[in-house]
Structure formats: structure tokens, C-alpha cells
Amino acid sequence: MSQLFGNLVSNALKYTRPGIRPEIDITAQTAGESEIRLHALDLKAAYIKIEVRDNGIGFSQEYAHQIFHIFQRLHSNEEYSGTGIGLAMCRKILQNHQGEISVSSQEGAGTAFSVILPLVHKKNGGL
């Protein structure tokens, strides 16, 4: 989990707008049934939704599906350093914990990553 949230906070700090002080808000709440259905998660389980929101450069929402694929980047290495592995790793970590990640973004207006995790992790017979 530390790698997951470390990547999300690191990205929020990396993709800042020039001259704008970075702001990162992290909130948590119980995930609603509509969100659980949207991600095709187990309706019998309880989930928590953790959101990491920033005021960075953002990106066009049409690329939202692309950023979770390994080695897929929206910017060149000259613009922003990186490997294109971080968000793919985040998705894999969440899949291993029966959770899901999604993103909402707008160019010039920041990005919000939503992480949905079960309150009880049931892998290999329990916690």
C-alpha cells in the first residue's frame, strides 16, 4: 500500500503547473453502491474509497484508460522524467487486493485518482 500511495502522491508533485504551489488533498469515505457496481466489485462486501486529488497540469480525460498500461506515458521524458511503470503498478497492487483505481482529470485543472479497497481483504483465506 505504501508503494501505491507513494506513486500517487509522487505523481501529484511531479506534474505541477509552473508557478502554482502544488496542493494535494487525500480523502476517504465509504464507497457507494453505484461505485461498487461501476467497477464490477462484490456487492456483498464493504469498500472504502480513497481519493488523491491535485491541482496539477491534468490531462484530457480521453487518455484516462491509457495511463494505467505499462510504459504508456502522456509526456516525453524531456518534459517529465519517469518510466511509465508507476500507475500500471498501482493498478496491479489494487487488483491483488480486490480493489480498483480510476482517474478523473482535466487539462490545466488537476487530477483525481479514486482508489476503492475492500474493508476486509479475503486473499488466501483471510487477512
Rank of each mutant, 00 (worst) to 15 (best):
37 R>M: 13
31 A>N: 06
43 L>H: 08
55 N>S: 05
56 G>D: 01
64 A>T: 04
61 Q>R: 05
40 A>M: 12
60 S>V: 09
43 L>Y: 06
55 N>Y: 01
49 K>W: 04
73 R>C: 06
75 H>K: 12
68 F>A: 06
34 S>V: 15
44 K>S: 15
65 H>Q: 12
53 R>S: 03
81 S>A: 15
39 H>P: 01
34 S>I: 14
51 E>T: 02
41 L>S: 07
81 S>G: 15
49 K>D: 01
67 I>Y: 03
28 A>F: 06
45 A>D: 13
35 E>P: 03
29 Q>M: 11
29 Q>T: 09
53 R>G: 00
37 R>A: 14
66 Q>A: 12
34 S>M: 14
70 I>G: 08
58 G>V: 02
81 S>C: 12
58 G>F: 01
34 S>Y: 12
65 H>F: 10
56 G>V: 02
40 A>E: 14
73 R>D: 07
58 G>L: 03
64 A>G: 07
45 A>K: 14
62 E>A: 07
68 F>C: 08
30 T>G: 13
62 E>P: 00
74 L>Q: 05
37 R>T: 11
57 I>F: 05
34 S>G: 09
36 I>C: 03
78 E>M: 08
30 T>H: 14
79 E>R: 13
47 Y>D: 05
26 I>S: 00
59 F>T: 02
24 I>Q: 01
68 F>Y: 07
45 A>Y: 09
57 I>M: 11
77 N>P: 09
53 R>Q: 04
40 A>F: 10
48 I>W: 10
40 A>S: 14
73 R>E: 05
38 L>K: 11
58 G>N: 04
33 E>R: 14
28 A>M: 11
74 L>P: 02
56 G>P: 02
82 G>Y: 08
44 K>Y: 10
72 Q>P: 01
67 I>E: 04
66 Q>S: 11
58 G>T: 02
36 I>K: 03
63 Y>H: 10
25 D>S: 09
81 S>P: 11
55 N>R: 02
78 E>K: 08
72 Q>G: 01
74 L>V: 06
68 F>M: 07
69 H>G: 07
52 V>C: 02
29 Q>A: 13
73 R>G: 05
59 F>D: 02
68 F>Q: 04
38 L>Q: 12
58 G>M: 03
80 Y>V: 11
38 L>T: 09
74 L>I: 08
40 A>W: 08
68 F>V: 06
75 H>S: 12
71 F>N: 13
59 F>A: 04
60 S>C: 11
52 V>Y: 00
81 S>T: 15
69 H>P: 02
62 E>S: 07
54 D>P: 01
72 Q>M: 09
25 D>G: 05
81 S>I: 13
60 S>I: 10
64 A>W: 01
75 H>P: 03
78 E>F: 06
24 I>R: 01
76 S>A: 09
26 I>F: 00
29 Q>D: 11
29 Q>H: 10
52 V>G: 00
82 G>Q: 07
39 H>F: 10
54 D>C: 03
47 Y>V: 05
75 H>E: 11
52 V>T: 02
30 T>C: 13
79 E>C: 11
75 H>F: 14
64 A>Y: 01
56 G>Y: 00
25 D>L: 10
50 I>S: 00
39 H>K: 08
77 N>H: 15
58 G>A: 07
